[in-house]
């Protein structure tokens, strides 16, 4: 080349974090460059896609999202097995949506039971995600942490209001935690500092920057993730050098545009393809901004994203 490619002086590396227990664990992170900037650094681990499983049959999913799982929605373990067996899921994310006091308010004991069943049914790492209700998550995730001590889980969301309780649980039972803050670099950093102060080892923290769907605030999260990565890789911001998890499937499939039929919105085309593309695009943009684990729903969307990731990694060139 007649001119030199202008380079970025990277001076940091994302920590490598292993989720799950031997031999079924996966490692994420380790990047020494911006996402897919392979001409100037390395991504030793391909980002991972986790497939969603719900603890109770979903009530309000669009047909397109429900269809692949219609035969298993009543049995989380079978659902998880289908994800792994039929769709090649590399991780499972158990969403404990029904534990929300504003939903069915499923008791913590029940959530433990479901978690155990799902964990026993699969041979890939398990992510367990609470309902987002701070107090209930404390109770539920803490109990899961204790009762499922033999599994090495990724537990989220761990927020500023629950970091002590859940951080301690991680310490006691060796689970990895998703440190969750609302779309802000400094808050993310602060929570990571707090977890460090509590004694949670650095190899058990993953950042959850809180994400929104395409067309619904995606740009905020996208930029926060880019800034996280910039700080981690080029500004020696050691408390941001963690992998990032994006729990996006549930965000995409609740937006209006994944729910409208072709009759209701002829300009939006086929609802299945539209929903799949909305989810795939949301995921891909987050991967470009620094996502290491994306939690997704639809098998077709996952396949599309996987294909594109491989292309970006240069396979098939």
């Amino acid at each position: 080349m007649s001119f030199e490619i202008p380079t970025i002086s990277y001076n940091g590396v994302i920590r490598q974090i292993t989720v799950g227990k031997e031999p079924n664990c996966v490692t994420v992170g380790g990047e020494s460059c911006y996402p897919f900037y392979l001409f100037e650094g390395a991504m030793p681990h391909l980002p991972r896609i986790a497939m969603e499983v719900y603890d109770a049959p979903p009530e309000d999913w669009p047909q397109a999202a429900l269809e692949p799982f219609a035969d298993v929605v009543h049995d989380p373990a079978a659902w998880a097995q289908k994800c792994v067996g039929s769709y090649g899921a590399e991780m499972i994310a158990l969403q404990l949506a029904s534990t929300d006091p504003n939903a069915q308010d499923t008791p913590a004991e029940k959530a433990v039971e479901v978690t155990k069943k799902v964990a026993a049914a699969i041979n890939v790492p398990l992510i367990v995600w609470g309902s987002g209700n701070l107090e209930k998550d404390k109770e539920v995730l803490r109990m899961i942490s204790e009762r499922c001590a033999e599994e090495t889980l990724l537990l989220g969301p761990v927020e500023e209001g629950s970091y002590k309780a859940l951080g301690a649980a991680s310490l006691a039972y060796q689970h990895t935690i998703a440190a969750s803050t609302p779309i802000d670099v400094n808050l993310a950093k602060q929570l990571n500092i707090l977890l460090g102060n509590l004694g949670v080892p650095d190899d058990r923290i993953i950042i959850d920057p809180t994400v929104g769907a395409l067309g619904y605030g995606l740009e905020f999260c996208y930029s926060v993730m880019e800034r996280d990565r910039m700080a981690a890789l080029t500004q020696e911001d050691e408390r941001l050098q963690f992998p990032i998890v994006c729990n996006l499937g549930k965000e995409v499939w609740k937006i209006k545009e994944t729910r409208l039929s072709e009759e209701e919105a002829p300009l939006l085309g086929d609802p299945l393809k539209r929903g799949v593309l909305l989810e795939a695009m949301t995921a891909l943009l987050f991967l470009l901004a620094g996502g290491d684990i994306v939690i997704m729903r639809h098998p077709d969307a996952i396949q599309l994203v996987r294909g594109l990731m491989n292309e970006l990694m240069g396979e098939g060139v």
Binding site: L214, L218, G269, D270, K273, M281
Partner: peptide, 20 residues
């Protein structure tokens, strides 16, 4: 261009090009 393909792409463009 199909409705199901163009619409998500336009959203992506709108999001990325919003003045932060």
């Amino acid at each position: 261009l199909q409705g199901h393909s163009l619409f998500p792409l336009l959203l992506a463009r709108m999001n990325i090009y919003t003045d932060p």
